[in-house]
Nucleic acid binder design. Sequence first.
DNA 1: CGCCTTTGACCCGCGC
DNA 2: GCGCGGGTCAAAGGCG
Length: 311
Amino acid sequence: MAGAAGDRAEGVGGGGDWPPFAGDAFAEYSSSVFAELGGWSDGLGAGAGELPPLDLPAASASGPVPMARSDEIMPAASGEPAGAASSCSSGDGAAAAAENADKPQEAADAASMKPAAAAGKKGQKRARQQRFAFVTKSEVDHLEDGYRWRKYGQKAVKNSPFPRSYYRCTNSKCTVKKRVERSSEDPSVVITTYEGQHCHHQTSFQRGGMHFHGAATVALAEQMSFVSTQQLYNLPPLRRQQMNPASSESAVSSVPPSLQQLNGGDELRRSTSYSPTASAVQTPSSSLVPPDVSFDMGLLGDIVPPGVRNG
DNA sequence: CGCCTTTGACCCGCGC
DNA sequence: GCGCGGGTCAAAGGCG
């Protein structure tokens, strides 16, 4: 099976930063959702895992909607502790420490830390790095994002019939992780959560993927089917309790409605929904994609436009 | 042959 | 203190 999943994943998007957005451009055609999560599991566990029906805001149905702007997005991303900036250099440790600061539930995550790591950070919980969740309508679970990932685990998720898959960047120096799961609410929706930032270029497209640099991005966009806009989820750092049906519900419901929190500095972003079958894709106007958009920075870079990123 | 997926076990924190 | 749930490890097997 190895091949199947892997190939598909790699081949799907064709490879490339799938959140093909860059600043305004991104806003233009984005239709799926992505939000910075306050917590690794929290975000998805509570939010993603139990995403409410993706009732797209009015905007979604009709097209471009007022969505998070790059500058609105950046805050959260750039606002992260410097340590979170690079998973390669800072590694979990640094980032971890930084993140711990304001993420109580890190503890929950801490559970996942390796024995050694755990031991090493007894006092400090495992540090989580910048996290972004993308809610995408897709037929494939593992959306291609331009990087190569190695699946290192899969677990059944409570309250969800779909398992959650864990991926790690194949770059030995890169500690970026990715979690993929389908929404129990809407099986057609794939929730991808990234943690950390790549410290290398999208190396890997040797496996038949297409390169997604600059103009290449257009190709990606063209291969993507921007189906529908979904509401954004601004998932606040949820605590374990919030994962309860009731809690999570409130947590989630507090988000989408009007993206009102977008201005709150929290991270929200829309990406796009797409179908893997490029051939059947309804090419979104490629014109929406800046030909010179380059996504060769870390994960964060994939998400945050260079300019914004630097402030 | 190398890389990747699969899968069960293990570890850890949290909530009760 | 116990159980639950989530995250990760590591061995085995499969595929290109």
